[in-house]
Design a protein around this nucleic acid. Structure first.
Lengths: 242, 242
DNA sequence: ATCGATTAATGCTTATACGTTTTTATGGCT
DNA sequence: AGCCATAAAAACGTATAAGCATTAATCGAT
């Protein structure tokens, strides 16, 4: 059991994270430079650097080079989480079908919560995004805009975890299903469902939003399974998170 | 641009993962020691150590100290994923309520899928776990066994992602609600619900399993909220990743 | 044969020196 | 005075070596 002693560098990393949290550091704020941190945490420079590089890998900070540079507070993004997720899923031999199922389980509840809690700003953003979706219905940007719509819906749900998960799942799914596009007919069907979801959210109709979203994601999964049966059995692989 | 260099550690990490998969390394196998890896990947020591640290936190390897030590292949466990999750959730200011909501969204579907797909081996494991739960109903081990039950249910659902998420959420919830135990009465109620879920799974009653699980997690959430209203607004914090 | 002390291998931390990148200041030229 | 180029400085980045800490393997005494 490694519970006996945590590694010094990780202890320092945790201390830095605590410091960021306690001092309410925002993204973009500069942290103390190396010299000051050396005195503050009483470690050697290599140890401090290991902690800093570790946090950089996790997306917590960014290291800027040159004079006036130093550690800058960042915010772990969806892709950082998606990277961690895909790594563990690779070792669990998870396939695309599992990802789609999870999305089917989460997305309807997310839509319901969004209907109950969306602010006016959320609604405006969703409407804008939907308008662009209709404009992009036959262009290559459709997928990205589609992902953004689900992302916005997640944030509108008032629960960051929904947005985090659905967005990460979308990224991983797209990694696997990249070569396979959607037909125009399928896209039209998706747009109809999305319109119904959006309308239900506007009307604060949680149950309607849930049902229409359920139909949307189920339809999407079935479409992929029908188009390419081998695709849904493809295993998740830890892709380059850059 | 540090982007090219910063990803070097990730490239090395990916190479190590590929090596593990290609050579079909099992958990417990030893990887080459640091010196050999330095020559193999032609990177600086700090970079290699960064890659190894990253993989250690993700649970892919363990770094064992001392003679005959070195990097040892492991298998990412739920707690490794929970650690990564908690780090990003901390920076999203996620509170306990959000975790509970997510669990409410996932657990019912997981139970339904388990009812549809559980093998006989799964059922046997679940029954054993439930029996131990009844034995542990008034001991400190109850929570851990409870978590294991959800983990098993996830595997029984045929979709590892369900088990991974619910189990990780359980761990994080427990970290926050540690001081606040469950009353004997509440535990008895949870046990009754679990028994109904287990029975529904045995009978292949997907809808029943979903309903009973929904009631279980909803009840658990409401219990916590009633016992300590401040608790559910507590923020997730990155716990000790050892 | 078993248990305890010794030894060796290995990662962890520290220490120091030098290289790189960016900002800032200087200084001569127009 | 104003402007561009070059040099200096401030900060991080990389590299190497040495000692410390920890643990497995080994050896020896009971």
């Amino acid at each position: 059991m490694p519970a006996g002693k945590a590694k010094r560098a990780l202890q320092v990393a945790q201390a830095i994270v605590s410091d960021i949290q306690l001092n309410a550091r925002e993204a973009g704020d500069r942290l103390p430079q190396e010299e000051d941190m050396l005195a503050r945490y009483e470690v050697a420079r290599a140890t401090l650097r290991e902690a800093l590089r570790f946090l950089e890998l996790q997306g917590v900070i960014q290291l800027q080079l040159g004079r006036g540079g130093g550690p800058v507070v960042s915010r772990p993004q969806t892709r950082d989480f998606a990277s961690s997720l895909s790594l563990i899923l690779q070792f669990m031999d998870t396939d695309l079908r599992a990802l789609l199922e999870l999305r089917e389980a989460i997305a309807p509840d997310m839509a319901a919560k969004a209907a109950a809690r969306a602010t006016n700003a959320d609604l405006a953003a969703l409407s804008d995004c939907y308008a662009q979706l209709e404009r992009d219905r036959e262009t290559a940007g459709f997928e990205e805009t589609n992902r953004r719509f689900h992302d916005l819906l997640g944030w509108a749900s008032g629960n960051p975890t929904f947005g985090l998960l659905t967005s990460a799942l979308h990224l991983l799914t797209r990694d696997l299903a990249m070569e396979l596009g959607y037909s125009a007919q399928e896209r039209a069907g998706q747009l109809r469902c999305l319109a119904r979801v959006l309308n239900a959210v506007r009307l604060r109709d949680a149950d309607g939003a849930r049902r229409h979203m359920e139909r949307l994601v189920k339809g999407s999964s079935e479409y992929l399974a029908a188009r390419s049966p081998e695709l849904v059995t493809q295993k998740v692989r830890w892709g380059d998170p850059g």
